[in-house]
Computed example of a mutant assay.
Amino acid sequence: MGNVDKRNRLSEEVFTYKKTKDNKVFIYWMGKQVTILAGKASDKFLKSIEGKDHLETQLIMAKLTGNFKRGNEKDGK
């Protein structure tokens, strides 16, 4: 995963997810909801992260959320 995460952001747990009772998956970036998976998409996601370590799970969520970040946003520090 060396070339994928050059700035080492995925080790900071920027993505989180929450599964609901009706099997929907809400994916969050820095505490803000960015996507909702339902039906087959949520099943596929949950199976894909099963048994994965932290960095692999972060990468899967980053790929699922798509191109909503372009790299030129400010951190707000």
Rank of each mutant, 00 (worst) to 15 (best):
K74E: 12
T57W: 00
Y28R: 02
D43I: 03
K18E: 15
H54Y: 08
D5Q: 04
N8P: 02
K69F: 12
E73I: 04
E50D: 15
I49S: 06
K74I: 09
K6L: 15
I60C: 08
M61E: 00
D5V: 00
A38G: 12
K18A: 13
K19H: 08
R7P: 02
K47R: 14
V25L: 03
E50M: 07
V25K: 00
Q58N: 09
G51S: 04
I49P: 02
G51K: 03
G39W: 01
Y17K: 08
R9D: 13
L64N: 02
I60Q: 04
I60A: 08
L10F: 10
D75G: 11
N72F: 12
H54W: 07
K24C: 07
L46V: 02
M61G: 01
A41S: 11
F45D: 01
A38E: 15
N67Y: 11
F68Y: 15
D22W: 09
L37G: 02
E56K: 05
E56V: 03
E56T: 02
G51E: 02
K6S: 14
M30Q: 14
K18G: 04
V34H: 01
D53N: 15
G39Q: 03
K63P: 05
L64Y: 01
Y17L: 08
N72L: 12
T16M: 09
K6G: 08
N23I: 02
T35E: 06
M1G: 14
N23V: 03
H54A: 10
L37I: 02
G31E: 04
A41M: 05
M1L: 13
G31T: 03
K40M: 07
G2R: 11
Q58E: 08
G2Y: 09
K47F: 06
D75H: 08
E50Y: 07
N67R: 14
K74A: 10
D22E: 13
Q33D: 06
